[in-house]
Amino acid sequence: MLIEDLLYTTENSLIVQSLHSQLGVEPTNGDGFGVGWYDDRPTPGRYRSTEPAWNDRNLREVAGHIRSPMVLAHVRASTGTPVQLTNCHPFRHGPWLWMHNGGLAGFSAMKRDLLLAVAPQLFPHIEGSTDSELFFYLALTFGLESDPPAAVARAVGLIEEVGRQHGQQFPVQMTVATTDGDTLWAFRYSTEGRSRSLFRSTDISVLREQYPDNPVLHRLSDDARLVVSEPLGGLRGAWHEVPESTCIVIRHGQEEFLPFAPTVLEPVG
């Protein structure tokens, strides 16, 4: 898809959401942004900035010229960590990209315990100070590259155990998207059972028949799928909410829904 169609051309595009989020905790997401995409190179490209997404003219310029079969895009509202480039999503390790919406409650208190759980060979690659990036490296530690649902379940299990040791009743609030460029895994889960919003698109070929005059639909292939925090527009029947405690797996236009629950680990400490 053309990155411009994800960021700018729809009724409730990501740029609109960066200023006027309807379903997010914060209506304004102006603490930086990032876009990651795949092409024929072994690692994905990224463009990140600490500027508000709506105010970056270079983003507007490049978005109209980059096409990719897999795109991740994120606008940030900081939950307490600094506004700096290394804290902007998506995070990258090798061919993998990772984005997280939500937060880890009591992160400053449990940060040390979680950092010590990261595999020694991965630890030097942590660049920023966010809970989201540390979450990514915990998932990598637990085998993200071989079994993403199991790795994320183990990471969440560890975070919840450590969080409870530090007095947090509901340590995890998350929607997560991660990809190796070929398959997308998206998760919706929270310890409390009241997770941030997550939606998936309807089959594009069906929508194209329903809305033959919509130009964006005609620029997308039949197997295109979008997973978003908020619907990008108001087309009736275009969006379906992803259920609580679910992992959705999308590969080559095919969708699979898996129940998601944290894997309980041995207590830390």
Score class of each variant (00 low, 15 high):
227 V>Q: 02
106 G>F: 10
191 T>Y: 07
135 F>C: 03
144 L>T: 04
180 D>N: 15
147 D>M: 05
80 G>E: 09
226 L>R: 03
149 P>V: 04
261 A>R: 14
262 P>T: 03
245 S>Q: 14
230 E>V: 06
45 G>L: 07
77 A>K: 10
117 A>H: 05
145 E>G: 10
260 F>Y: 03
231 P>D: 01
76 R>G: 02
91 F>E: 01
68 S>A: 10
205 S>L: 11
27 P>L: 12
226 L>Q: 08
26 E>I: 13
125 H>F: 15
137 Y>T: 00
12 N>K: 14
165 Q>Y: 02
238 A>G: 07
85 L>Y: 12
135 F>K: 02
20 H>P: 03
78 S>A: 13
67 R>Q: 13
72 L>Q: 08
73 A>F: 05
127 E>F: 07
207 L>T: 07
205 S>W: 02
212 P>C: 09
112 R>D: 13
188 R>M: 05
146 S>A: 15
261 A>H: 13
149 P>I: 01
258 L>K: 10
3 I>P: 00
210 Q>T: 14
208 R>F: 03
127 E>A: 14
116 L>N: 13
109 A>S: 15
143 G>P: 00
91 F>L: 04
31 D>I: 08
253 G>A: 08
6 L>G: 07
197 S>W: 04
75 V>N: 01
177 A>H: 04
215 P>S: 08
208 R>W: 03
179 T>A: 05
92 R>H: 10
250 I>L: 05
20 H>L: 14
69 P>E: 08
100 H>V: 04
50 T>C: 13
226 L>H: 04
52 P>M: 05
256 E>Y: 05
131 D>W: 02
195 S>C: 09
39 D>Y: 14
87 N>R: 02
60 R>T: 05
73 A>M: 07
70 M>E: 03
129 S>L: 14
215 P>Q: 09
66 I>G: 07
242 V>H: 02
86 T>A: 15
268 V>C: 09
241 E>Q: 15
34 G>S: 09
258 L>V: 04
90 P>T: 06
69 P>I: 07
129 S>R: 15
44 P>N: 04
202 T>A: 15
138 L>V: 01
157 G>K: 03
2 L>A: 11
21 S>N: 12
174 M>G: 05
230 E>G: 05
58 N>M: 14
14 L>V: 11
128 G>Y: 01
40 D>A: 15
193 G>H: 10
92 R>A: 11
